[in-house]
């Protein structure tokens, strides 16, 4: 038995293994506390809620791995959503056809990519700190969005847009399918492409990477451009889930994406971390929030629990490391 556990843990990494164990623990606890937790309705509602946060978290992931941060993700997503909404409204609002939708999606992705590209170029060529660059971009996008919408909601889309946010394919929610595909693509990009390899190296030491012939400027530019594209996807998903667009929608998610990255074992200083543990961390956060909700807890309380939980994880990591060092020294 011990051997089997050891093997699994070696295969997927200790960190991921610990997260999976914790997730299982949460599942058991919540299902024993409330019979409504382990029901198809609850599981499916979780699967509908998770993807927006999930894709935004992946948009945050690569910048952090490269030693930076993208604070503009939410407003990039908002602006992308706005682009799609505008295209649909131009094509007749509720009567817009599928063709207008496709154009809108392409435009939304292009807007996301453009926002990312500008940030990437600034980070790569001016050497400005990503926090400052993305903060400036965030303020710009927010102001632009509020100016264009006058701070109001935009709604009135054709019905089929809602199916993307609420429909299922073979019993699997469509948003979940999109998220799974994105996560898979992200995993492959980071683990087995030249770009992904460069992201990790740059995250550990930009200058040494440059001296080794890694195209650091191109890589940095791409990191933020790709991040912008993911924001675009998240923005489209938000349009289809909420059937409306408002600039500032999902603002509270910004810090949660950072939290999810660190919970998933991403090194805050860059260079180390994987997609898989981050996805599990996201599921943990979702389970925590849905479970507490079913138990009748206030929604704000569950946000507080997220925060407490992250502090707890930091402490546990510290203790485990101390213990490991102590054992290593005794050997």
């Amino acid at each position: 038995m011990r051997q089997i556990v050891q093997n699994i843990s070696d295969q997927i990494g200790k960190e991921t293994f610990a997260l999976i164990c914790f997730l299982a623990f949460l599942f058991l606890t919540f299902s024993s506390l409330t019979p409504r937790f382990l029901t198809a309705a609850n599981l499916s509602s979780m699967a509908f809620q998770l993807p927006v946060l999930g894709i935004l978290t992946l948009a945050m992931l690569a910048p952090i791995l490269s030693g930076g941060l993208n604070l503009a993700i939410i407003f990039t997503a908002n602006l992308s959503g706005l682009t799609l909404a505008w295209t649909l409204l131009q094509a007749g609002g509720p009567d817009a056809g599928i063709f207008a939708f496709v154009i809108g999606v392409a435009a939304a992705l292009a807007v996301g990519a453009a926002a990312g590209l500008v940030m990437g170029l600034a980070v790569a060529y001016t050497g400005a700190h990503p926090i400052l660059v993305s903060l400036a971009m965030m303020i710009f996008l927010r102001g632009l969005g509020e100016f264009l919408t006058r701070g109001g909601d935009i709604s009135g889309f054709p019905e089929f847009v809602g199916t993307i946010g609420h429909g299922s394919l073979f019993l699997i929610p469509i948003p979940m399918i999109i998220f799974t595909l994105v996560a898979l693509a992200w995993h492959i990009m980071l683990v087995s492409t030249k770009h992904g390899f460069s992201v990790y190296m740059i995250g550990s030491n930009l200058n040494a990477s440059e001296y080794s012939g890694i195209p650091t400027k191109k890589t940095l530019t791409l990191i933020y451009t790709f991040s912008g594209v993911l924001c675009g996807i998240a923005g489209i998903l938000m349009v289809s889930r909420f059937n409306s667009v408002r600039v500032g929608h999902g603002e509270a998610l910004l810090l949660v994406t950072v939290l999810a990255c660190f919970l998933g074992g991403i090194d805050p200083f860059g260079g180390f971390g994987k997609v898989m543990p981050v996805v599990i961390a996201l599921i943990i956060l979702q389970v925590l929030s849905s479970g507490l909700n079913l138990l009748g807890a206030n929604q704000h309380l569950s946000t507080a629990v997220w925060g407490l939980f992250l502090i707890l994880v930091m402490v546990i990591r510290h203790v485990v490391n101390q213990l490991r060092n102590y054992l290593a020294r005794r050997e």
Binding site: Y200, M201, S204, N205, N207, A208, S209, G271
Partner: peptide, 9 residues
Amino acid sequence: LSLGLIQPQ
């Protein structure tokens, strides 16, 4: 240390 190798990797 800082240019020849990417030490943590």
